[in-house]
Structure formats: C-alpha cells, structure tokens
Amino acid sequence: MRKSAIMTLAGMSMALIGNVALADEATDPAVKARTAIMQLYANNIGQLGAMAKGNVEYNAEAAMKAANNLALLVQLDQSTLWPQGTDNASMVGTRALPDLWKNFPDVMTKGESLGAAVTAMQGAAGTDLAALQGAMGGLGGACQACHKAYRAPDE
C-alpha cells in the first residue's frame, strides 16, 4: 500500500517533469498541422519579403511561385485543424486564444481578407518590385488582424 503510494507519487512527479520539458511543444496532431501551415505561410511570405527588403534581387518568376503557393495555402480546408479544446487555456503548445472559438464568423471574415490580400499579391508579384512592395502591407495587415485578435502575445 505504502509502496504503491510512493510509486504513484514518483509517477506523478515524472509526469510533471515530462510536462515541463514539453511545455512549448504541441503534441496534438491538429495543432502540429496548423502550426506547419503557418510555417508554410511564413516561408513563402519570407521569399517575397526578402525581395521587398532588397535582401534578394527581385525575380518575377520566383515571386509568382511564392504568391501562387500562398493562394494554394489560403484554399486549404482547415476545418478539422481547429477542434474545440485546442486553445491556450486548455492545453500547452498553442497560442490560439479561446476567443477564436467564440467568434467563428469573424475568423472567417478575416480569412476572406487574407484571401483578398493574397489575390492582390498574385496580381502584383510578377509585375515589378514596386508592385510587390506595395502588396506587402496588405498581406501583413491581414495576417496581423487575426493574430492580434486570436493569438496570445509571444513572451
């Protein structure tokens, strides 16, 4: 009896240590998948941004590729990637705020704004550098609108 209690305690502390170690990593497959989609966004926007900032020479073809990738990402059906209970109050490894689940119509509206910004970038990316630079602001604004409302600040 006493031994099993000690074992349980030991088990609990192991579990606690485990939780601490994994505090920042998502284990939920849906959360991992949606985080990966965000990274794909960042990767493609990064290619456009590098040209916008002058870190990489402007290349119409490469810019169009990145913009077209963004257009594909926007069309992904993410409906299974945001299940209830995957907010930052319910689990570790996500910065998604519970508010997101309370305001789905607004989230959809913001998603449509992102779609419009990506379409604008598709129109601009292959034109010239000035057009690409001009479309970056709209893209940033669309990403930020959702992050500001539904993502906890990074600490």
Binding site: G46, N55, G140, K148, R151
Partner: peptide, 19 residues
C-alpha cells in the same frame, strides 16, 4: 531593412507578425 519592413507591414524578420 528589417526594422523598416516591420514598421510597414508588421512582418518580423522570420515573417511572423507584430504582437
């Protein structure tokens, strides 16, 4: 360039957004 872009579009050098 990173700073100016951040203040314009809100993108950080990792192409995350301002928080």
């Amino acid at each position: 360039g990173d700073i100016a872009e951040y203040l314009k579009s809100g993108f950080t050098p990792d192409f995350d957004t301002a928080g």
